[in-house]
Design a binder for these strands. Sequence first.
RNA 1: GCCGAGGUGGCGGAAUUGGCAGACGCGUUGGACUCAAAAUUCAAUGAACCUUGUGGCUCGUGUGGGUUCAAGUCCCACCCUCGGCACCA
Length: 838
Amino acid sequence: MKRIYEIRKDGGIKMSEYDHQHIETKWQKLWEEAGIFKTSNRSNKKKFYNLVMFPYPSGTLHVGHVKNYVLGDVLARYKRMRGYNVLNPMGYDAFGLPAENAAIENRTHPAKWTYNNINIIKKQLKRLGMSYDWDREVYTCKEDYYKWTQWLFLKLYENGLAYKKKAAANWCPHCKTVLANEQVVNGKCERCGTPVTIIQLDQWFFKITAYAERLLKDLDKLTGWPERVRVMQRNWIGRSEGAEVDFPIKGMGRKIKIFTTRPDTLWGVTFMALAPESPLVEELVTDERRSEVSAFLERIQGEDRFKRTAANGPKEGVFIGRWAINPVNGEEVPIYVANYVLMEYGTGAIMAVPAHDKRDFDFARAYALPIKRVIAPSDGSEDTLPYTAYGTMINSDKFSGLSGKEAIDAVIDYLEERGIGKRNVNYKLRDWLISRQRFWGTPIPIVYCPKCGMVPVPENQLPVRLPEEVEFPETGASPLPNLKEFVQTRCPRCGGPATREVDTMDTFIDSSWYYLRYVNPHLDDKPFDTNDVNAWLPVDQYIGGIEHAVLHLMYSRFITKVLYDLGYVNFDEPFENLFTQGMIYYKGAKMSKSKGNVISPDELIARYGADSVRMYLLFIAPPENDAEWNDSGFEGVHRFIQRIWRLYDEYTPRLKNVVVKDMSLKTLKGDAERRLYIRLNKITKKITDDIERDFHFNTAISGLMELLNEVYDYVQEKNDVSKDFALLKFILQRFVTLIYPFVPHLGEELWALLGNKPFLANEPWPSYDKDALISEEHVIPITINGKVRDRIEVNRSLSEEDIKRMVLDREKIKRWIDGKKLEKIIVIKDKIVNMVVR
RNA sequence: GCCGAGGUGGCGGAAUUGGCAGACGCGUUGGACUCAAAAUUCAAUGAACCUUGUGGCUCGUGUGGGUUCAAGUCCCACCCUCGGCACCA
């Protein structure tokens, strides 16, 4: 240890510098050698599964990422001290497109780039002092992992939850692959930002829609999740109740089926509209209208899809020459094809009620179609069309006069009786498109045989391996379709020649079950052990970014429910508590390499130490808030850490042999000591509560700062003769356990300096002396008409009457009341005295 | 447009059940130490006014109302910021 000796004025005691580098590497090594963060699946302790979303290894971690892992680590260390058997694993979401792009650029294999990045990240995490059980590491790109991702696919396939169909797909021209709806953000690729186009392709889907209702309903169970995440999922599932109604087409024995949430407006239908993609358009269009309709369709299909489907866009359409008959009143209404009708939702056809729907209203205006009012505000107030709220039905035969939900129910009952329509529920949620025309992902374990057709690869032939010798074409397309040794295979059923599926799976499948693999990362005959998984799961605390509110979290919930239904697990929600942390900004923007505003933890660790980085990231703001990185704020925290060091450096040599007895208010002699002891216990409670109460680490740390300030005040106030060294040792022992989860290296070092044996990591979290929280004497404010005018020291034993008398006796108070009328005295015991004076 | 979160000093933020607004930190100012600087340390620091001064006094948590002995906190109306969804019938 580097020691710098200094002669001090008061007699020359040596001082040593806070050598974070030495301390941190030393304890990281000792922890690892002792293996104290290894977790057994067998333990008598209560379990705590602590999980931080694993990283996509795209490069090095910046402090924004680091904050995430620090939060998780503080919690893990705290929970261990609270006596839990803590599972705290780490892994890498290692398949994905950037690796492939990098491989194309550098003419190497994506694995090389991926493992390179993983090694860097791993080193960074270790230098930050993360207390992971490194034996449980999971790499989604390794065979022993993706074998089980393929197994998962087979389970879904066997149960009718994975299917293939030709479908319009979102295509990213840059990534040269299709994307799930969730992965298209504002019409652009979620990953690279390129505008997405539509193509027709044969694609694999997971039937997540079969779980729509449960995914929605079970959100109510997730009380440990942030409300906004639950709302986002609810919106995404987009359940709406209504009715399906059949509209016969005039002069044809055919009907158009529509979905509506407002059957109470059926009498107000003045036209129908079909989506441009609807096959009905081609089928129904009359010869006279054909050329005009075709021209319209051509124009619409050439338009940018995102622009076309943006709200408030111009409403355009063409009459297709046919008429539909309103089944409730026999009215004939024209059928249009219209740009604002979506093929993906409902039936791709709508009934249009311009009086009570904004879009239909705009369209009717544009094409001079009739607007017929059938709903009036229930309170009889004036309004303007379109009136889209619920109200009372008018001009609707025998239903006129009904209102709200009652009206809707009555109409649906009527439709069902007459066989015109039926009650129905619609979801915005679509099936999950999982095919990717990429190389660096989990191969889909399917074989195409000319004789047997589509055949799944049997479980005992897994994994379907990704080839290692690969040339990447300049075009950026996947090399798999052209790799003979991969594509050409034998049919598992008949043994004849067959070809492999060349698409790989969406990487969100990899990450939809990794939390199960951590439980048994080395099992080679099954993905996980059901008993072990049932013992560890659900995850007690999941920590990650809000950007996964819909995608990853919904997919994981879905997969868990499937495994539950198949009897592999006994829980149907994977994450009990979810915490979404805020981002770190720098120079007013999200950190990103392209903006050049990235702060790397590496230099900070080298210069100030991992403990300073950890503590600052927690102190900067409440962890759920976004926060701006501030260099001088960081230095402030580093100063605090050095201040801790100096205190221990000065006193631990004298405290080493001091024997600490039990402390209590009664045994302490002086006022200063009692005050300090009371503060110690109050702050201990505060810090404990702050951690438990939604991770308010920032206020917990401010409590630590206050406590340190109190100790400094005490040691500076008292000379060495009058200091209570037993109390001082007691406090320094306690303090070091309190700082440990935040600054574990410094904690261990100071713990050792106090003469204790390693490891502080295994010590219990301190309890506090409840008697010390309630001090006998305390000062309360006296307010007059709500303004503080005086203070008074009161004893707990005093009655309200005693306090009133004391207050009225005070000169200052007398002056305030003098000449006025005292109307009331309110005494809130131990808190405040308020007087009402007029 | 709909849904959600939020608005407190120069800045990040604190105030947990309605009970002293501004904890803690940053920044700023002044002092000590030093030949000097850095580091450290002590003190002040919401705004205005009065006062030689200990101090006093008024205002103050987005805006306007209300409830209450007492409101950052509860109620009503509104404004603004951020996030999500958005032609979903």
